[in-house]
Design a protein around this nucleic acid. Structure first.
Lengths: 352, 352
DNA sequence: CGTCGGCGTTGAAGCGCTTCGATACATCTA
DNA sequence: TAGATGTATCGAAGCGCTTCAACGCCGACG
């Protein structure tokens, strides 16, 4: 392996000069810089990561911790992970992948050993057991998701309450007065992951404002349970004319079931989904949906981490910072005027 | 941060003793070991990763490179990644997540800098541009997937050819004589990822042996394209009585479409899927399927890497090693005797 | 003309760990 | 009992980099 010293010798300068060329922390004459850069290229030099970390106490690695819960929708997790890795590289950092297996201790190990400079936590629960440890490490950390107590923490998430509101506004604007919400699996609510609850809160709030009735039913990820949920919904509220779905896994089954029951989308039933764009567009009917901006979430998380990692930011107190990404409702083919409601010329899209 | 030296002082021993307690590379008396371990615990010591890497030229990190291709089925990738991370931890290693964004150069950077001791490459293409670089690094590398030239490389993959054979055997055993195969998106074949081709080869081979006609059609991931593919299949081969699907994304749509067309599964059409267990069991009909052992693939990849990372393995030539995991076909509710074929008492499961 | 300040560069001191002898002592063998 | 053998521990020399203090040099300024 080529070392800094060899590059220095080859270029006829001292080791520190090479180091400063690399880091740009001191001014170097253009002539010298070029000579050094040429040597680096010619020798195929790669700075040794370990030595660098040891000398600078910065590893240029951020840890991404994702608990693996079977009830979570993997593609979204995956997209966030990819966004994190990609964005981190743009900031000359790498990403260490931690799963939940190891338990919250992983936090301590990774940060305590200086392996990672900062952490990004995915799938945060309201009372997340990792949080005390994260606070204790006193290293930059960004959560994807919102815990109950955001004190001294930095969080990024989609604004799910607003998501819920927009869904209801849109449907109400089309004349729907009785809507059902097919939520996440019961386990998600029990675990108190927050996002599911915030959505239904937003839904209820706006529904109350606009005088719309809402029936909320959680639903597991299988065809079976979707079938059960759907029939229960129409049993209890035969007048239901619109459905909001937040469990991506059952969107396909739901459309399939509605078709079987002879309920046309959107003529008989309007459907709004909260899901990634790709899912919304690949169904039998292109779905009106609020996108889950997975990539953007990962990206923002990294950017926030980088902010806190800048040398001059060290002195600033961590402070609380919560960033809720604004949802965007895209109207597609799955929503239309409520059955029996004359088409008006008022704007149908009630999103705010 | 607590250092080794502080632990040594606290325990009243030398630094090297502490180091040997940690690594176990020399015998240490039980008494001393316990004293040291107690000090470690009391002080909350975590060895500094950078210093360790520098001194030992081993980072205890393995890089996991996953190119992100939108046409790949993310959950499988994700499950492999999780398996890799989990298994690596069991071997006291961590995982660095690399995406394809950075290009094949990432290989050189990560290994050249000593950041990672070894690599695992996912989603390998037949003529993968990363392979020359991987060979050049002379570091342990394991591929998940099979390239055209496996020379000097270690590979893990599902035995897709055998997968194809088993599907056909099973269907032929049920009396099916005309089957269709719904394959991956055309892009997957064009990119020559190997696995899709190997499956269809296995299908054709066994079909030829058993005198079964096969119609192979690629299919994109949307409902639309599934609809098109399906109608083309029945246009060209109205006598089709069984379908093998290898594109997980369209399994749901396919079942939905078959139902719409009044084709009952399995009475009119038998369906065999090549997909993760979870997908197979969550459909409207539990699918007979060959599982994609994602977790096992990731696990084996790590184990193979660890083998090559053992100090005594260093001298052994890398050699070529390909490990094809045996597929397992699980019979569920989606396959039955071909329409018009009397139920025999011969074993229906033709899997070998 | 002497001095000061800035620029570009250097030497050297670590960063915290691993690991290779070397040492000290206890145990066994002839 | 001398020497050989083995066991437990220690000291010190790095690993390859960053960074700080210091230095020489130049032009500018009083």
């Amino acid at each position: 392996m080529v070392t800094l010293a060899e590059v220095a010798r080859h270029a006829g300068v001292s080791a520190s000069t090479v180091s400063y060329v690399l880091s740009g922390k001191r001014t170097i004459s253009a002539r010298t810089r070029e000579r050094v850069e040429r040597s680096i290229r010619e020798l195929g030099y790669h700075p040794n990561a370990g030595a660098r970390a040891l000398a600078s106490s910065r590893s240029n690695i951020i840890a991404l911790m994702m608990p693996l819960r079977t009830d979570m929708y993997l593609p979204v997790m995956m997209e966030i992970a990819i966004a994190v890795a990609t964005t981190a590289r743009e900031h000359a950092h790498d990403v260490l992948l931690l799963t939940g297996q190891e338990g919250p201790e992983a936090t301590r190990r990774v940060v305590g050993s200086g392996l990672a400079d900062a952490m990004i936590l995915m799938d945060v629960e309201l009372e997340d057991e990792r949080l005390p440890l994260v606070r204790e490490t006193r290293r930059p950390a960004v959560l994807i998701g919102l815990p109950a107590d955001t004190g001294e923490l930095t969080c990024v998430d989609l604004d799910f309450a607003e998501t819920g509101r927009q869904c209801v506004s849109h449907l109400a604007g089309l004349g729907h007065r009785e809507i059902a919400m097919v939520g996440e699996a019961a386990a998600v609510y029990e675990r108190r992951t927050g996002f599911a609850e915030r959505t239904i809160l937003g839904v209820r709030e706006r529904a109350a404002e606009l005088g719309v009735r809402v029936l909320h039913r959680p639903c597991e990820g299988s065809y079976e349970s979707m079938a059960g949920t759907l029939s229960r919904i129409f049993d209890e509220r035969p007048g239901t004319t619109a459905i909001i779905v937040q469990n991506e896994a059952v969107i396909g089954p739901m459309l399939s079931l509605l078709r079987q029951q002879g309920r046309a989308v959107p003529e008989d039933i309007s459907v709004v989904a909260v899901c990634p764009e790709q899912v919304a567009t690949q169904q039998s009917v292109a779905l009106t949906s609020v996108a889950i901006p997975a990539f953007e979430m990962g990206q923002r998380a990294v950017e926030l981490v980088m902010d806190r990692l800048r040398p001059d930011a060290v002195l600033a107190p961590a402070g609380t910072h919560t960033e809720l990404l604004p949802p965007t409702l895209t109207v597609r083919a799955s929503t239309g005027p409520a059955a029996g409601v004359p088409v008006s010329h008022a704007p149908a899209n009630g999103a705010r």
